[in-house]
Design a protein around this nucleic acid. Sequence first.
DNA 1: CTAACTCCCTGATAGC
DNA 2: TGCTATCAGGGAGTTA
Length: 274
Amino acid sequence: MPELPEVETLRRSLEQHLGDDAFARVRVHSAALREPLSQRQLARRLTGHRIEGLRRRGKYLLIDVAGDSTLVVHLGMSGSLTLESRDLPRRSHEHVSFDLASGRQLRFRDPRRFGLVFAAETSRLARDRHFAHLGIEPLGGLFTGGYLETAASGRRCPIKSLLMDASVVVGVGNIYACEALFRSGIRPSRPVDRIAAPRFEALAVQTIAVLEDAIAQGGTTLNDFQNAVGEPGYFQVELAVYGRKGEPCLRCARPLARRVQANRSTFYCPGCQR
DNA sequence: CTAACTCCCTGATAGC
DNA sequence: TGCTATCAGGGAGTTA
């Protein structure tokens, strides 16, 4: 389940291994993703263009090419983007392949097809409908307790919903929301209008901390996450609450609980989190 | 406006 | 062994 740390891990591994390269050919094998893939659009914007840089916005990976175009990739639930040998046979659920000038191939694979791949004009990307409504980057220096408190004003939703609201702050999915709330001692169901300033501050600090810790470990690999060259992450061994229902809390040893909140599994400690 | 739901998809796993 | 049910969830859309 790629969240911000996994996408950042992918970005860094691509940056490291891609080097100076260019798109030579784009092939769409199956177009039915979250939004229909357009071979024509991808080919027109990418073919023959040199790769100029790799960026990330929330959970979106952005590959900028010469000529004011950007390849946008969202991994959804089960997506992967890997550098392969061109000779390697196509695997199931490989929806797009990008031949590179160096002879290698970049492949997008996504069994559950919640992912997204498209190309757009770089200079208009911020106004694209996928990005226009997005909130701030949690690791961008503006994410503070005060920011969260302001975002919460006038709202009464559970704090976990606020933390996972991409129009407030991007990149925080179910796993890291659970972990950040555990680290800050806040119960996920607590209404945002019942949280005082110091606790918002703790939550901002701990959200940043858990994301940075996960990036340092190359992300979390529960089932299938891998970076651009097929390596897994290792943060799963440091998860304190996610997936640990019934197991002892690392802080107070009481059994951890699981509740369904907003149709998502929420893991927390009934003892430590209030 | 907010909050809470539904849907999309397939692989892994549990239960019988 | 082989079936069926359940679960995983980001983001868009719908409903109240």
